[in-house]
Design a protein around this nucleic acid. Structure first.
Lengths: 335, 335
DNA sequence: TTGTATGCGTTATCAG
DNA sequence: CTGATAACGCATACAA
């Protein structure tokens, strides 16, 4: 910018004013303006954001701390975040919260994130208390996405999916088909998933299907995590006729395990997932699931992140939508 | 830092020296050092990276431009990149190169990336010539991952998978099982994928299986992209007995389409993919595919990105590994 | 309408 | 051994 000022024969401050479209209060002669603009263009001038932020300007950086980027669901969420952020001129820098990371790493992630204008948490990070503590003592706004809508407040704005509504839709679909022995498979973690389990229990009680938790199994959220659990369930004297999987990944795992163990889907066992990841449409058979309102959740999150900080600590919730595909059917006739 | 200098009653430059472990040439009295360190600790001092980089220090930021974050394969690659980068103290900022983005957006991505110490390209970006041009006129090192190992040089270091070796392994496996009518389904894009198609053609010629490209179909790299192509192929007078899919995503699409159209896998049709995404182990049936040496490729990429710039423009290549699962079997008997 | 001067947080240089 | 000062690139209050 100094160079361009010299070339144009004006002061550097003038250049700054012109290039930043300074308030109309300060009028610059059109002649000078044009000349400077032309030279800047020709010299390929690039503003240096760091110098700007040194002066107190926002860094236009959004920190994203993701529970697991490998999870296709979060990968999609990140893409959406990146998109929405860019729409506001922001870029996304990745922090990590890998479960395997020691606490020092979590700390580092935050330190590096400190120069962001805001931090977006994706997925339930309550397993990293150290990180959350750090975040609380952080001056930038923090917003938590998919942390679950119930339970004690985290201290920052939260926007989640309406898990109860989703579970109602899924179980309503299954009971509507005639199912009564409906199993639940989900990871044993806090937050969003736990809420789905709670909603499942509540629904059954209210629908007068007293299972007493016999059909609940905790499995890791991986594509090969549900095999053993499914075997156990199908070996019961009264095996379930349907499985509600807390995530599509688990649903995929169940479908695969069912195939391996010769359990016909959906003839013998119906399966419902949660998330509607891209693969859900391409499983064999394709998966009935709940479509996550990703765009709305991310949009709201970005608004909280870069908008004015609200006085209260809002908790937003959006409803998922049931997508009926080929993995659900009426239960087999009692034999 | 000014505060801590005042509190300690020393000059701010002294603090800087101490906190940065300045060269031993300059010795600071242990007493002062300890005192300053203690105060810094207690005041929770955080260095401000932007101010540092203003002075010419590296930003410790790695720009990642990825073709499609939603692609589970790239999601895994990004995670690995993030991991390896952090091992060297770097963070990753996301650029986007969505196919739908207009050129201005691609430009923006680069501009924003300019303050990174290096830029890592993931996947073939040759469809964004504007972006590549920008990158060439960029001062920071650029390294391209998964851009393919053949064809004209991009002008920056490239590290890719050995597509020919992978294709040989896959087709060798299929021909070893007795297949001769092997179809190829892949996206019609340049780079890595095109190389696989070329290697497929070459292999068949050398194996004296003259198909003349009758079994080649170009399909989008999506989970629902292969349906029509598969129908066409199976409707041929001599339908293929095996499909080599250029990516696991396409393979998943083929498996699903086969199921929908009552084509038995692998009894009637064997399928091989490429990448070994996590889902490949959980398809129905599980997918025979080529495991991508992600860690080695990313490690090499990071080395090029943050290491000394080599005088030549290296092109590294790592071999994938065939993983035989349940989607391949001998072809059906000719009826 | 434009130029000068200052400061943001650091580090490097030079003087003390 | 340590303090003062300049410089990095930019924006702005103030002077001309």
């Amino acid at each position: 910018m100094k160079d361009i000022a010299e070339t144009a024969g004006v002061a550097q401050s003038t250049v700054s004013r012109i290039l930043n479209d300074a308030p109309v209060l300060i009028r610059v002669s059109d002649e000078t303006r044009e000349r400077v603009r032309a030279i800047a263009e020709q010299m390929g001038y690039q503003p240096h954001p760091f110098a700007r932020s040194l002066r107190g300007a926002p860094t236009m950086l959004l920190g994203a701390v993701v529970r697991d980027i490998t999870d296709p669901f979060f990968a999609g969420a990140i893409e959406m975040l990146s998109l929405k952020a860019k729409a506001h001129g922001y870029s996304v820098v990745l922090g990590h919260a890998l479960a395997t990371a020691d606490e020092a790493m979590a700390l580092t992630a935050v330190l590096e994130a400190r120069q962001c204008d805001a931090i977006v948490l994706l997925g339930d990070l309550r397993e990293e208390p150290r990180l959350l503590d750090d975040l609380h003592s952080c001056h930038v706004p923090v917003v938590a996405l998919w942390h679950g809508s119930e339970g004690p407040s985290l201290g920052f704005p939260t926007v989640s999916v309406d898990n109860r509504s989703g579970v109602r839709a899924a179980l309503g679909h299954l009971t509507g088909l005639g199912h009564r022995r409906i199993a639940f498979l989900g990871p044993d973690v806090l937050g969003d998933i736990r809420e789905r389990e709670g909603a499942y229990r509540d629904y059954l009680v209210r629908a007068r299907i007293p299972l007493g938790g016999r059909y609940i199994r905790h499995v890791p959220n991986t594509v090969d995590g549900a095999g053993d659990a499914l075997c156990e369930l199908m070996a019961l004297p009264e095996p379930p006729t349907a499985v509600f999987a807390a995530t599509d990944i688990i649903a995929v795992s169940v479908i695969h395990a069912a195939f391996v163990h010769d359990v016909a889907v959906p003839a013998q066992l119906s399966i419902v997932g949660f998330d509607d990841i891209p693969f859900a449409a391409a499983t064999v058979p394709s998966l009935t699931t709940l479509k996550m309102p990703v765009e709305r959740i991310v949009t709201a999150g970005v608004r909280f992140a870069i908008g004015r900080v609200p006085d209260s600590i809002p908790r937003l919730v959006y409803k998922p939508k049931l997508i009926v595909r080929a993995s659900t059917a009426p239960p087999p006739h009692e034999g």
